[in-house]
């Protein structure tokens, strides 16, 4: 599994995609950062700085695109180039292959996210002592981002395992991710009891909002990780079936 992960990582950092994504992502966060700094100049707000910064749509929408882009090639490309046969005739299990590739995507995602941590000390320097910026909510937001990465990454790996077309893989994974993300907004339409409960449980945006206020619950990792495992298991099953049909 780690051998597969290492190879995937080496390939990621050799491809233009990761650097392009890095540029795109830092541009988004940079623009967001600029707006936040501007908005905070001499104004008071009912929101905390963390809420202000991390809830700007640029930032969370980028999260929905990054993982489908990172994962679209993991299995699709192996199918297309025929290297899948080489991989699966080596002594590795389907689960090793799925997990190795998934973990590599997660590491790249974390690497893309890492530079944004620098905004925190910069923001603190600009704000001086006028507006409090506590560490807890910031780390809570990064925790939610990592859970998102796990969640959307697993969806992406699954989408890539079901087709040899990278484009189709991207569209499938982006569509599933969007459904999960936007279904959560149902809570703002005051639905009946059970739907409201479900909405609160899966609302990614609310999870982010609460984290930005420093509120975390065990519900969040349970939801994201269990669904991620489910998608990874489905990916494994698709790979097994694909071998059966070869």
């Amino acid at each position: 599994m780690f051998v597969i992960m290492q190879r995937e990582l080496a390939m990621y950092f050799r491809s233009l995609l990761v650097y392009g994504l890095g540029f795109f992502f830092l541009l988004m966060t940079g623009v967001t950062f600029f707006f936040v700094v501007n908005a905070l100049q001499g104004q008071s707000s009912e929101y905390s700085v963390t809420q202000f910064f991390f809830q700007i749509p640029f930032l969370w929408f980028a999260q929905l695109i990054i993982m489908p882009l990172l994962t679209m090639r993991v299995f699709s490309e192996e199918y297309r180039l025929g290297t899948f046969e080489g991989l699966m005739t080596a002594p590795v299990t389907e689960w090793d292959a799925v997990l190795g590739k998934f973990l590599a995507c997660l590491v790249v995602y974390a690497a893309l996210l890492a530079p944004t941590v620098l905004y925190v000390p910069i923001l603190r320097l600009i704000l001086l002592d006028n507006t409090p910026l506590e560490n807890g909510p910031v780390w809570a937001v990064y925790w939610i981002y990592l859970l998102w990465g796990t969640f959307y990454g697993a969806i992406g790996v699954f989408a890539s395992a079901i087709t040899r077309s990278q484009l189709l893989s991207f569209i499938t994974s982006f569509a599933i991710s969007c459904v999960f993300f936007f279904v959560g907004f149902v809570i703002y339409f005051e639905p009946p009891g059970w739907l409201r409960l479900l909405g609160h449980y899966i609302s990614a945006y609310e999870h982010l909002d609460l984290a930005a206020q420093g509120l975390l619950s065990t519900q969040q990792p349970v939801f994201y990780l269990s669904v991620a495992v489910l998608f990874l298991l489905m990916a494994q099953q698709f790979i097994l079936n694909r071998r059966g049909r070869s």
Partner: peptide
């Protein structure tokens, strides 16, 4: 196999090292 499955972006030695470890 008939269609030799190679990661064409890798170097020969690097590919064989990966395969040996795998």
């Amino acid at each position: 196999p008939e269609q030799v499955p190679l990661y064409k972006e890798m170097r020969v030695e690097e590919f064989l090292t990966f395969r040996a470890r795998l």
